[in-house]
């Protein structure tokens, strides 16, 4: 599916730019004949590729930091303690993962960080969880059911405090910048419940099941 989405983004993106450039009467004052295609090249292709590397490099430091802290938590037995605390929930969500597996603890840490809006901590913890989940993966390169479920929980994540949104609203002179917290929590809870139900349902589809078999 990612293949089709990727293809569509590129084909539609460039297609629209071409149509826009051709339908626009040539502006003699402009320094380029094809402004949209130029934008696609500069911002879309060159700019985004650069941004991707900047993002990934920027992640290294904070990634190392949280992986280090996680290692301490792991050796101190905090992660397994956390995992056993939420065992009734996690074993239902991730039936293929042993209840005391480090992946469980890492996933709980990631989801908690996300709920608190700690984006800096959430991504490293989530990647740690993926690494642990991948240790249970019998077919490397293919997503397991547990990975898919974890991803959907992550993308539809319940965030208790959307701090950035509140800050922007406050700066824009809102009479009540925090009033959106309630509706945001309800909306994201609905999307999480539907997302988890969907991912569980889709996992039963034979075509998806077959991909897991060797």
């Amino acid at each position: 599916m990612l293949n089709y989405i990727w293809l569509s983004l590129i084909v539609i993106g460039i297609g629209v730019a071409v149509i826009k450039d051709l339908s626009q009467p040539a502006d003699p004052a402009a320094d380029t004949r094809y402004p949209m295609l130029t934008k696609v090249t500069n911002d879309g292709i060159v700019g985004s590729a650069k941004t991707a590397v900047t993002l990934a490099i920027g992640l290294i430091g904070i990634m190392a930091m949280w992986l280090g802290v996680m290692k301490i938590a792991e050796e101190a037995g905090l992660i397994s303690k956390l995992a056993s605390l939420l065992r009734p929930v996690t074993t239902r969500l991730f039936p293929d993962v042993p209840a005391d597996h480090p992946a469980m603890g890492a996933m709980i840490m990631n989801i908690s960080a996300n709920m608190l809006g700690l984006a800096n901590a959430a991504t490293p913890l989530g990647l740690k969880a993926m690494e642990e989940l991948n240790k249970l993966n019998k077919k490397i390169g293919t997503a397991t059911d547990a990975m898919c479920t974890f991803l959907v929980i992550n993308t539809s994540n319940v965030q208790l405090i959307p701090a950035t949104v509140i800050a922007i609203r406050a700066a824009a002179g809102s009479a009540n910048p925090t009033e959106i917290i309630g509706p945001a929590i309800v909306a994201t809870s609905i999307s999480t419940v539907v997302g988890v139900a969907t991912v569980k349902l889709l996992a039963k589809i034979p075509a998806y099941k077959r991909q897991l078999e060797a």
């Binding site: 590129i10 539609i12 993106g13 730019a17 949209m36 985004s48 941004t51 991707a52 993002l55």
Partner: peptide, 16 residues
């Protein structure tokens, strides 16, 4: 990340 951001970047920059 490069694959994803470039595709999204093309889509956005082209005005789609």
């Amino acid at each position: 990340l490069v694959a994803m951001l470039v595709a999204i970047g093309i889509f956005r920059a082209g005005g789609a």
